[in-house]
Amino acid sequence: MFTRHTLLLAIGLPLAATGARAETPNDFLAGFAKEAQSADANFKGFSAQRGEQFFKARHGGEWSCASCHTERPGQIGRHAVTGKRIDALAPQANAERFTSRRQVEKWFKRNCNDVLDRACTAQEKGDVLAYLMTVKP
């Protein structure tokens, strides 16, 4: 335990010193996996196919994720109410996506409430991200 903490400290300190750390989609995927594992001991990894179905389905409400991000999230989307342009969501099409914890947490919180009327599980978030990472521009 001691060595593990020391190792974390050794990695964490230089990162903290450089300020906000830029993250990658894979970092978020790993984080969701860890969260899903602790929520469910039978967690068996993420599925891009399941993520795609989740993304395109309505979940009892008026909207799906695709209502704004379109069924081709490598392309530009439009806000379902205001018509405002939404930059592509797939990381291969838009390098800014899934690089900021603040942004990722903010949008999952908001959009899961809008589409599902509840928070998304780590399994759902990981599946959707796994799907988005396969989408070409």
């Binding site: 109410v81 603040r102 959009n111």
Partner: peptide, 12 residues
Amino acid sequence: LDRHFGTDASLD
């Protein structure tokens, strides 16, 4: 903001 014209637009 969490109930902003039918959407959740909450901020920190």
